[in-house]
Design a protein around this nucleic acid. Sequence first.
DNA 1: GTATCTCCATACGGTTGCGTATGGTTTAGC
DNA 2: GCTAAACCATACGCAACCGTATGGAGATAC
Lengths: 193, 193
Amino acid sequence: MKPQDGRARLGREYWVKAGLRALVDGGILAVRVEPLAREIGATKGSFYWHFKDLADLHQAMLELWEEVATHAITRAVRASGRDARGQLDLLIALASAPPGPTFGGAAIEPALRDWGRSDPRARAAVERVDRQRLADVQGFLRDAGLAEAEVTPNAHLIYAAVIGFETLRLTTAVDMHDGLRRLVSRLFGQGGG
Amino acid sequence: MKPQDGRARLGREYWVKAGLRALVDGGILAVRVEPLAREIGATKGSFYWHFKDLADLHQAMLELWEEVATHAITRAVRASGRDARGQLDLLIALASAPPGPTFGGAAIEPALRDWGRSDPRARAAVERVDRQRLADVQGFLRDAGLAEAEVTPNAHLIYAAVIGFETLRLTTAVDMHDGLRRLVSRLFGQGGG
DNA sequence: GTATCTCCATACGGTTGCGTATGGTTTAGC
DNA sequence: GCTAAACCATACGCAACCGTATGGAGATAC
């Protein structure tokens, strides 16, 4: 994972992404300066030039993740040009897709949630992301014409199911989103995806 | 967390439970011999008497958790004497209850899932537990009279939602199980809880 | 009351990691 | 080509931890 463009210099982002990979692989306690340096082919000298200390790297990791996690899927869905029901179907399809290669191909989100269990700053970031995405799902359901009393409980159900699938996919290999698609069909009648 | 009964000797189970607490608090890399010894008021001498090494403790932690996680709720539900639909409602009620004090009051399951991301043995244990509980939910749905084609997808949906709620409860403080209860009502008509 | 087994404390060597200090190397300005 | 800034390697002191070795205390048997 050295720089591919011939540069000898690395830059902050290399350390941040390497930190996120280490987080995915072994948790926040595995994000350590010297192993990271070995992995990216540098030494601590580079690290402590770009970051004050480990906490500084942690902060940068959180900021990068929060930006991506909050807006990545929602932005793609809104930009799809579909109608409300189509956006909802697309949302579920994207959520059921294999985890993207954004930070090394593994699922970063469970790792960050786990980090949040022990670090207040990470927990706050996860909470902000959850609130934002829950509001997004509620917006989709409302725009798709669901009765107001049904919006919040079903948004909770759908979002929890997506998070649960994401969690379960790490151990069981089966795609389990069929029930979710049936739920959406039941909520809106038989049209759509 | 020293022995309360006046014993000076500790026994394996003290170390195992302390290990699970440390796992919940800081992940598997936080399960370290010397910090554990300080916490329970012993020294490494005791640890290495009861365990060959850290991996031995890990194994014991997994075995204890797997037994509890697989059978705790299911056993309580089956022993409740309710009918099938009542058992299903009880299952959801138990799953939506605050995490029990089994291993120190915090939610142990997300911690163990996270461990499973980096340790094959932990991953295998989580997978066995998930399969067992998925089969249990399918059994409940089938016994409650759900059409066969609906059993598997809805069991997946319900179980994923429960896991998702469990995950989200760690950051958001809201009870989000209402949508799940509505789903069950929709599946079986308006009877029950 | 001593022999033995169980359980634990203490002390040790070796490894890994953090953060700092310092000097060297590359890049851009001019 | 000289200078200044950006970037990085090396070396150091310090702390935490792992696993082992060894001795000793407490219980139990007889």
